[in-house]
C-alpha cells in the first residue's frame, strides 16, 4: 500500500511537470505566431529611427573579443573595423553610441528582443539568418583562402594530385566547401586551430584551407608562407542587421552606406583598423564600398 502511494505520487508529479512544460512551450509558440501575424500592431520590440534620435542614444551590439573587428583596448575603449563604422553611424545620426558586448550565439536574440538597435558584430549574411533579422547592405567580404609554404605555393585547386593532402579544421565552412566542390582532394582534418597550424608547419599537408581573414593573418605573422588563393568559393558578405521589420532604421543605414561609399569610408576604415593585421594588399578583396559587391 505504501509503495502504491509513492508510485502514484511520483506519477502525478511527473504528469504535473510535463503539463507545466507543455504549457510553457505552447504559450511561447502561440506568442511568436501571433507576433508574426499581427506584425506592426502588436507590441513592437524595436525602436524606430525617430525614437532612437529622440532618446539620444543608439544601442549597437558588437564583439568585444574579436580583434581586429570588435575588441576592447587596454583603456577599456571599444576598437576595430565594426566599431569604427558604429562610431560613424552615431556621429551621422547625431546620437551617442552605447556599445553592447555580444557573443556569436546571442546576436539574433538581441535583435529579436530589441535590446540592441543594430548588430555590427561581424555578422555574415546567410539565408537562415535573414529569416530572423533584416540585413542592410554589406560592408565587408568574407571567403575562403588557401595558404601554403613558399617553396610550393598552391595557386589553384584544379588538376590536384591525389598524393597531396589538404589541411582543414573540422566543422568549418572550408571543410564543407571542399567536400562538396572538390570531392577528389584528400583532406586531413584537425580539431583545432593549433593542431592544424602544427600540421602545416610540419609539412603534413601541402596547404591549409580556412577563412581567408585567418590565413591572411597567418601568412603575415609567419614568415615562409604565402596565401596562394586569397578568395575561394562562394563570396559571403558581412552586413549590419536590425530587428525584423524595422524599416526606418534599415533605410537610414542603407542610405548611409551608399553615401559613405562616395568618400571611400570603408577604405579609410580598413587603413585605420585592419592594415596592421592584413596589410594593404588585401584591401580590395575584403572591403565592400557603398554596398556594391564587386
Amino acid at each position: 500500500m505504501k509503495n502504491f502511494k509513492r508510485i502514484t505520487a511520483l506519477a502525478s508529479l511527473l504528469a504535473l511537470t510535463l503539463a507545466v512544460s507543455a504549457c510553457g512551450k505552447q504559450g511561447s509558440t502561440d506568442e511568436t505566431a501571433e507576433a508574426e501575424n499581427t506584425g506592426d500592431q502588436k507590441a513592437v520590440v524595436y525602436r524606430t529611427l525617430d525614437e532612437i534620435k529622440e532618446s539620444g542614444t543608439i544601442n549597437i551590439g558588437v564583439f568585444s573579443d574579436k580583434n581586429p573587428f570588435g575588441y576592447v583596448d587596454e583603456n577599456g575603449e571599444y576598437q576595430g573595423y565594426d566599431v569604427y563604422f558604429a562610431n560613424r553611424i552615431g556621429e551621422d545620426m547625431g546620437v551617442e553610441v552605447n556599445f553592447v558586448s555580444t557573443e556569436a550565439a546571442n546576436r539574433i536574440e538581441y535583435l529579436q528582443t530589441g535590446k540592441v538597435d543594430i548588430i555590427l558584430a561581424n555578422f555574415t549574411v546567410t539565408e537562415e539568418r535573414a529569416e530572423e533579422v533584416d540585413f542592410a547592405l554589406p560592408y565587408m567580404n568574407v571567403a575562403l583562402g588557401v595558404i601554403s609554404p613558399d617553396s610550393n605555393v598552391v595557386q589553384s585547386l584544379d588538376n590536384w594530385s591525389a598524393d597531396d593532402e589538404m589541411i582543414v579544421i573540422s566543422g568549418t565552412t572550408a571543410e564543407k566547401y571542399l567536400i562538396e566542390t572538390y570531392p577528389d582532394i584528400p583532406l586531413q582534418k584537425y580539431d583545432s586551430y593549433a593542431t592544424a597550424k602544427n600540421a602545416l608547419e610540419n609539412g603534413n599537408g601541402v596547404a591549409w584551407a580556412n577563412d581567408n581573414t585567418e590565413v591572411i593573418a597567418f601568412a603575415l605573422q609567419n614568415k615562409g608562407y604565402t596565401v596562394g588563393i586569397p578568395s575561394l568559393g562562394s563570396q559571403d558578405t558581412i552586413a549590419p542587421a536590425v530587428s525584423k521589420g524595422n524599416e526606418t532604421l534599415l533605410n537610414w543605414i542603407n542610405d548611409e552606406i551608399k553615401a559613405l561609399g562616395e568618400e571611400q569610408f570603408f577604405h579609410a576604415n580598413y587603413e585605420a583598423t585592419l592594415v596592421d593585421t592584413y596589410g594593404l594588399e588585401f584591401q580590395e578583396s575584403l572591403v565592400v564600398e557603398g554596398g556594391q559587391v564587386q
Binding site: 568585444s64 573579443d65 576592447v72 576598437q79
Partner: peptide
C-alpha cells in the same frame, strides 16, 4: 552570455586585444 562584462569576459577581451 547576456551581455554582462564580468571578470572572464574582461580576460577574454584582454587576451584577444593582444593576440598579435
Amino acid at each position: 552570455m547576456i551581455g554582462v562584462v564580468e571578470i572572464l569576459k574582461v580576460a577574454q577581451q584582454i587576451i584577444e586585444a593582444n593576440r598579435m
